[in-house]
Design a protein around this nucleic acid. Structure first.
Length: 500
RNA sequence: CGGGGCGUGGCUCAGCCCGGAAGAGCGCACGGUUCGGGUCCGUGAGGUCGGCGGUUCAAAUCCGCCCGCCCCGACCA
């Protein structure tokens, strides 16, 4: 049984024309090419648009975003967050109000300068983020401590006019995201909000998307422009040796409330500036899912986020169509009634083998093959995407079995990625070791004195890797250790990696 | 912004050096055949050869300028 399967697989690969069908690049050999191919052949995104970096989220890619929105939105609302929508256009005078914020964003802001024949009196920015427009409104809404906490989220598009080459989902000029903006009476509350949001983001990453993350507090030089401090969640594309920031939570302190005059009358009768947080994740999450879980056959979607969890494929033989189609339809319907997102591919212009490959490219977690041979034995063949394993399942146990396997796949994808992440973190004490580890696609764990000059040297010496920050939820001690750059007493345990 | 490479049907590319009727594979349409890992056969549609200018009887091919894209550097929420 096994040797025949292996033999067939070898034959299949040998005769597969290069570059036309399936994924022609190996993930481990050329990650960048592999990634772009997965995105395109899986029909997640189309970059052949008239404006570079403003790409199309195709139905299959957008459906994943819908799943993410659905899941996260429920958690937000449970936490007391309300959705609203603010304008896309932000006048320059508003964007410049918080100096550090503006300086950070100005290199990548796209501007509207004309309308009809008229040149605008003031140019308008296509929002790169919405702190300024939202806080302009907040200052008009907030008067008393009774108005707090205020928690508003918006699902929106934003523009960041990157000069650098774009990568589908991971870096583009227009993308979709959610941005939450909260206002609190005290710093303690704002700090607690940061913790609460990190936990929600962790759930989205780890529990929905099966993406293990490291949660790091950004260095001063790397924090959000205008923030008091920034914490980010990093996923890890092992084959690329790069971390992917999939979510970020900022404690804004009072920087924006002072710039935008967000004041409230507190219980004690004193007028005070508010404490704020903002947090966001974007469609980059989708890129991280593809990059982390995908394999040499295409995308591998975690069941909880897969738009289609089970694809039922009837194996049609001439003259025997009816029983097979009928059984396939019944199985699909039964799965749907059990709350499973199931579809049937009964197109008669594609062969079964073609469909297997097609749905594997798209990353559907489970495939159920219904053919005459299966029906004779009163069952179906079930193939899982993560391991490639096939199994015969009796007709009466399909729903139960499907539920079980989908759960196993979800867990397996997380465990697999978690193992790769953990094994990739290497503690080093010298720059030579750090450089070497980065070149070997590792995440460096090292000790640092806190000097920005040493931070700059890390990037220079490693050829682009940066200090991504220190662990936020757990304290790691640097006692007795020395800075990997200057050798002085270390004060931080930091993580260093190349990133997307 | 500096260095290198590339622009030819939807996709991947050949043709260019050495000027002489725009090609292949895949995809697409139609007909048949097949369907348990990208079936096979036939017919067909589809291209301002990135743009402008020059040389020439004749330019995808040679020359100049411009535009776009990719890679390597510098910069970067």
């Amino acid at each position: 049984m096994l040797p025949i399967t292996v033999f067939m697989e070898v034959v299949r690969i040998l005769y597969m024309p290069a570059g036309t069908l399936g994924i022609s690049t190996k993930k481990a050999e050329n990650f960048s090419d592999w990634y772009v191919e997965v995105v395109r052949k899986g029909e997640f995104m189309d970059q052949r648009t008239p404006v570079r970096g403003c790409d199309v989220f195709m139905p299959w890619g957008y459906a994943i975003w819908e799943q993410i929105m659905h899941y996260a939105d429920a958690l937000f609302k449970e936490h007391g967050v309300q959705n609203a929508y603010f304008p896309t256009l932000i006048p320059e005078s508003l964007l410049t109000k918080e100096a550090e914020h503006f300086e950070g964003f100005t290199p990548e802001v796209a501007w509207v300068t004309e309308a009809g024949d008229e040149k605008l009196a003031e140019r308008l920015a296509l929002r790169p983020t919405s702190e300024t427009i939202m806080y302009y409104m907040y200052s008009q809404w907030i008067r008393s401590y009774r108005d707090l906490p205020l928690r508003i989220n918006q699902w929106a598009n934003v523009f960041r006019w990157e000069t650098k080459a774009t990568r589908p989902f991971l870096r583009s000029r227009e993308f979709l995201w959610q941005e939450g903006h909260t206002v609190h009476a005290t710093l303690d509350e704002a700090n607690q909000e940061v913790l609460d949001m990190l936990e929600i983001y962790r759930k989205v990453a780890e529990e929905l998307l099966a993406l293990p993350v490291i949660i790091l507090r950004r260095t001063e030089s790397d924090k959000f422009a205008g923030a008091y401090y920034t914490v980010a969640l990093e996923a890890f594309a092992a084959e690329a040796g790069r971390v992917i920031q999939v979510g970020t939570v900022h404690n804004l302190g009072q920087n924006f409330s002072r710039a935008f005059d967000i004041k409230f009358l507190d219980k004690d009768g004193d007028e005070k500036y508010a404490w704020q947080t903002s947090w966001g994740f974007s469609t980059r999450f989708i890129g991280a899912v593809l990059a982390v879980h995908g394999d040499d056959r295409g995308a591998v979607l975690p069941p909880r986020v897969a738009p289609v969890q089970v694809i039922v494929i009837p194996i049609i033989f001439k003259g025997k169509e009816e029983p097979v189609l009928k059984a396939a339809r019944e199985i699909r319907d039964k799965l749907r009634r059990a709350g499973i997102r199931a579809e049937m591919d009964d197109r008669d212009d594609y062969t079964a083998g073609w469909k297997f490959n097609h749905w594997e490219l798209k990353g559907v977690p489970l495939r159920i093959e219904v053919g005459p041979r299966d029906l004779e034995k009163n069952g179906v063949t079930v193939a899982r995407r993560d391991t490639g394993g096939k199994k015969f399942v009796e007709m009466g146990k399909i729903v139960e079995h499907t539920k079980e396997i989908l759960g196993e796949i979800q867990a397996n994808l997380y465990e697999r990625a978690k193992k790769k992440l953990d094994e990739s973190i290497i503690t080093v004490r010298t720059m030579d070791e750090a450089k070497n580890a980065v070149e070997n696609k590792k995440i460096v764990r090292a000790f640092w004195c806190g000097d920005p000059e040493c931070e700059r040297k890390v990037k220079e010496i490693t050829g682009g890797a940066e200090i991504r920050g220190t662990k936020f939820l757990e304290v790691e001690s640097a006692d007795g250790e020395n800075c990997l750059v200057c050798g002085k007493e270390a004060t931080h345990v930091v993580y260093i990696a190349k990133s997307y």
